[in-house]
Nucleic acid binder design. Structure first.
Lengths: 221, 221
DNA sequence: AAGCCTCCTGAACGACCGTTCACATTGGCC
DNA sequence: GGCCAATGTGAACGGTCGTTCAGGAGGCTT
């Protein structure tokens, strides 16, 4: 994110022109917008920047999207929906054992946030620029994911396989779920494939930490 | 964060005029800018907005700050510096016991991020708008805080009181420190004093989770 | 009273914004 | 060849932006 006027040098622009012919323009626009939002942030990326990056002029955007706002929502909503689906799937496939459910959830969530870290970063950072109706849609999806975690935790507590920390003698599963999600979400802010750990190792590490946090015996035990 | 033109209604503006006389204008500007950056985000808050909120006109800003950019840096750097100082102090005052050091660190860090959550939110969200030199300054401070945690963890492992998760048989203390800091930092994104937990309860909960994550026996044991 | 310094005003500058629109250009279909 | 719908062009619109600057107002020192 920077104030640099334009990220698109001329040679990159001609490369983009070539790409325009390889896929429908609406896809090229989405891709270019995503790349620029990720690098410099929604409010400072102009419609002209986006369209130049795919070899078109500013007016052409409005043949494919109603507004710059709709374009952003389109980008965020698609990855958010996919994430929610993956999370549900991970828990459902764990066969009802809370430890396996939590492990599967964390594994899927962390790997996705390592692999698609730019997408996650944009979704988390730029959501505030959406208009009220669109932002509510995304927040609903996030709450749904949090509730999946809360359910798994409650399940584990009821079965006696989790023993998470208590406050004043009582559990606050919502706070614990938030802490868990926060640490998993924000790997997208610092993880890089050139670092010390692979995605698999990250998933393993975070799964271990999650199980410890909720007082479960480790998977390997 | 929204696109609303102006947050400052007329009655708020007159209230701001009264406040201008209560403290030096440079303080009023800082406060007004902070409030607006927090609510709506740096790039969409205009110099005119900020100055109107303290009953002045746009030109007056430049008697106190060189630019809008310098104003933002001034705001972020002051809270970041204070945070770094508090973290060092917390660890230093724990008497060399790694468990006490980690507990003191998390306690101070979480309570601060609950109490000054708006400050933390601005510092984390708007840092990217600073120019290169200024952003490097802030990032150095963050690395310093991370390194405090890494040192505490290393200390605890060496003494045998911590047994954090391993990856391929080896510890990655940097990744664990990041996970720990991520979950503590982002309480500022969702904690509210009207919620279920007090600041003290949050500190207790997060301390418990941190000790569990690194494989230490709980403080109460 | 005169000079000076600090602070503020408000018009002005040059630039850029998202969006619209009248007008090409293209390519498939009769 | 003629028509149409889809798509792109680039000028134009009304607005806002950060910043500058000539000038005024008020108070302190001499």
């Amino acid at each position: 994110m920077s104030k640099r006027k334009t990220v698109v040098a001329d040679d990159e622009a001609t490369a983009a022109v070539a790409e325009r012919e390889a896929r429908p323009p609406v896809e090229a626009i989405r891709a270019a917008a995503f790349a620029q939002f990720a690098e410099r942030g929604y409010p400072v990326v102009t419609v002209r920047d986006i369209m130049k990056a795919c070899g078109l002029t500013q007016g052409a955007l409005y043949n494919h999207f109603k507004s710059k706002d709709e374009l952003l929502h389109d980008i965020i909503a698609s990855t958010q929906g996919e994430l929610e689906r993956l999370c549900q799937q991970a828990v459902a496939g764990a066969g009802g054992d809370p430890r396996a459910e939590l492990a599967a959830f964390v594994r899927v969530y962390v790997i996705r946030h390592c692999r698609l870290r730019i997408e996650a970063l944009v979704a988390n950072r730029e959501i505030g620029w959406l208009d009220t109706a669109r932002v509510a849609d995304i927040r609903r999806s996030r709450r749904a994911i949090r509730d999946i975690v809360v359910t798994v935790l409650g399940h584990g507590v009821a079965k006696g396989v989790f023993d998470p920390p208590r406050v004043e003698g009582r559990h606050d599963l919502k706070a614990i779920a938030m802490a868990l999600l926060d640490q998993c979400t924000h790997v997208s802010m610092w993880y890089g494939p050139g670092g010390d750990l692979t995605e698999e190792q990250m998933a393993k590490l975070y799964t271990d930490m999650a199980l410890r946090m909720v007082g479960a015996t480790p998977l390997s035990a």
